[in-house]
Amino acid sequence: MADQEKDDDQPLLMAEGLGKSYGRLIACRDVSFALYPGEVLAIVGESGSGKSTLLQLLSAQLAPSAGRVSYRMRDGVMRDLASLGEAERRFLFRTDWGYVHQDPAQGLRMAVSAGANVGERLMAVGWNHYGRIRDTASSWLERVEIDIARIDDAPRTYSGGMRQRLQIARNLVTGPLLVFMDEPTGGLDVSVQARLLDLMRNLVSELGLAAIVVTHDLAVARLLSHRVMVMKGGRVIETGLTDQVLDDPREPYTQLLVSSILPA
């Protein structure tokens, strides 16, 4: 905890002049920001605003056309993600990073039991004791409110909300420092969404996770994030504290977005 306190002054991830174009089509341009440990950043905007492209650039799944993303490795050194070898990048994804997909089927092994889905990341980093793997998987299922009796069932037998919670457990089991989330509540019923949001909020604050959440839902941004970036046409048009941007929006487009929310 003391170490973390000390490191909090250093950014965990930094984007500098980040851009991606496909030929003449510019998906995302000139994005710069710093993310600090424990900070939750929401990227909001409509479909096609470039937010998903940006998430892929930030998580090194897509190579940028311009600029760079650097990440502070566990040894404290900031490294340009483009300079990492594939093995290092994949290692990051199994240890320091998590990625929660909108569609749980993309982030889970649907035919493999829930316990093994959670345990896989542990086995991938060398855990070799069945009993301990299972105990750890059980405690994570409990944390994401999945009945332990379902530990040996495959997620294809789970409801949408359970699948999403399982995906979260699978991502958090190795104690990542940074989690990327792509529309984590998309496609879920409203009541299921509320439960998931509450769970994510608690986990993020208990574990001191940094997170980058892509969402088109401003309510999700308000509940989960400290800071928000509003994207339009591939650019970040407004950024700031979440409540500041949502309660006192400055840009015309942000004002339009905020005023388009239906009252609860």
Partner: peptide, 22 residues
């Protein structure tokens, strides 16, 4: 192939885990 190349064999233990669980 990528898993072989990088020596990422956690998945192989998933199969054995499933056996024991079942």
């Amino acid at each position: 192939r990528r898993m072989h190349a990088l020596g990422e064999y956690g998945l192989m233990h998933v199969k054995l885990y499933e056996d024991i669980a079942r």
